[in-house]
Design a protein around this nucleic acid. Structure first.
Lengths: 194, 194, 194, 194
DNA sequence: CATGAATGAGGATTCATTCAT
DNA sequence: TATGAATGAATCCTCATTCAT
């Protein structure tokens, strides 16, 4: 028991350190030794939990992505009307990006970099299924525009990443009002306007 | 002069090689030696044109960003009505991302990574001025929503980067129809809807 | 005792694993962890039976060498005539190299490498005494050439190692006929030819 | 000129260092850093001349083997009678093992270890052709026993390696007399005895 | 006795950068 | 200006060995 818990703790510490360091320096500029040090572990210990550096980021990515989608869909129900469903999911995602900024930034960096290998990337995408189904329903009901899911994602969801990065970097702050405005923009970009 | 031209050629070859290699491998996974080899130049020669690796990417970034904005605003005139002006700029940007994919991808990677230093990043942003002015005008005229430029950018422009990356990676293709749909989504997300 | 037997089994398993792995990869390319895994034992357990890696190979060497000489002299009697005695021993040695190939190869590698420490090497040589005595007798009787034992060994015994290694590596096969020819060559190289 | 010579010198220094260190410690116990230090070169410099550690030993092996066989056959002529030819070659080989002890020991260790990869090993064997041809001639003329070349080599040539190693290790000295005796043993083991 | 987890020291290799020419 | 050779400082990873249980 105690020893199993300690193992889990160590793994978590490693993943957390990876996120923080990669966020600040990028994948290749964060040596294993620093990750080890931040996780208060010997460099060699990393290799008890992960095959190599690539595996470490891959697994970190998958884990964070899973947490992200779990959070995103936690309050969503299949029987919600389309618009309510979308708003529910969108606001949870926005919430995640605001509150779990470290993790969100890590995902953003992973998604725009040849840092994660293809299989892990695919693995990460799988969890988005409920959103795609909601959109399919919305299209059938004539509420959502009948366009590619890539387009819907590009306009409805992805801008949040940009806003979060901007908030991190510049003076722009992502407050409640901005969020409401962002939501309107997102919804308007994908709904059918009569 | 022949020798001046040769110098410019070399510099350009280096910048081109940097873009291609960083696109495929990321900043830290592209050694100076490879850049030199691809540019058909000795590693030492790089240091005649650039202070160090960081300086090389910074300058590459600024140069590409300048080319990008020059292209974006080439057909835009200050006396265009707001909507026409936006459409003009938007379509040029879209065009750039489609046709000058290498450069566009490089910018996307730079913008989502701690790879470029802050001063160069600021330098790159400066060139967007005309777009911001257009938006200011649009807001005054009640055509564009009175919200932060960050939000406008996030919904009107940034999705194009996501679409381009998706097109590069997956089976999604960014054809004429998609572009038109994307434009509608972009415009709808920022215009005032009565 | 059941537990004593289990201890002996473990020790033997470790020695066997050492031989097999060192044969295939060499001393320094066989990690303790692999030895442990092959012996179905924890790495830490090795240190209950052996002081360290060097001690493990040393003891393995001595043990195999002892088994080798025991086999070599098993059918030899002190009252045999010199030639018969030599043939008896030689054929047993040849037999060992053919049938107990793994062990024989291990010895060959030890004998040509700075892998075993000097004391253990000396320990291994001790067991050859009966052969040296036979040669002494043969010299006295004018049957064996009056030359250094090193020379006798080099020509009478050592070639078998080379033949075995060749058989392992190349297409050469060490069959009955070859063995008979080898014996003639061995005997002719050390006997007094009138 | 001068710079080419310096390159050659460095390569030679590296090869020499490799031989000496591998002789004393074995392949896996000689770090590249030590080789570099002994050759008075930075570790990174090794990789300008050799692809990796394996390539370094392989090339060292091939080079030494070539020098060895060149020396062995330097005074041999195809029109020599078989026995004279054999004696000529044998004595040159013996001479090499005595005088160029470092190199000879290196070869011995390579030949009894999984240290050299198969292609390089084959490359090394090629140079022995003249000896095999001599033996073929000897067999045809009824002077050399009609047995496998492996057997001939095992008894005529290989014992010299054992003697050399013994001389290096123990109190045994390989003087002129011993050499003469060794030659007699070698010749007797392969010639047809009427 | 036995173990699996943990580790520090060290090894092969790479790379940004410099230097002699 | 241009270069190829050279390098010291890292970096990833392995491994003999130890320790808590």
């Amino acid at each position: 028991m105690a020893t199993l818990q300690k193992s889990i703790d160590k793994r978590n510490a490693l993943i957390k350190a990876t996120i923080e360091l990669v966020n600040n320096n990028g994948f290749h500029a964060t040596p294993m030794s620093k990750i080890a040090k931040m996780a208060k572990v010997s460099p060699a210990t990393i290799y008890l939990y992960f095959e190599n550096k690539q595996d470490l980021v891959n697994q970190t990515y998958i884990e964070v992505k899973a947490a992200y989608t779990a959070y995103a869909f936690a309050t969503y129900h299949l029987n919600m009307p389309v618009e309510e469903g979308f708003e529910t999911i969108w606001k949870r995602i926005a919430d995640f990006k605001l509150k779990d900024c470290e993790n969100a930034m890590f995902l953003a960096q992973c998604d725009n970099t040849p840092m994660i290998d293809e299989p892990s990337r695919q693995e990460g995408i799988k969890h988005l299924e409920p959103l795609l189904e909601l959109w399919a329903r919305g299209k059938k009901e004539g509420i959502i525009k009948p366009i590619s899911d890539y387009l819907l994602y590009a306009y409805a969801i992805n801008p949040l990443s940009f806003l979060m990065m901007s908030a991190k970097r510049s003076a722009f702050t992502l407050d409640k009002t901005h969020m409401e405005e962002a939501y309107r923009a997102a919804w308007n970009s994908i709904r059918v306007i009569k």
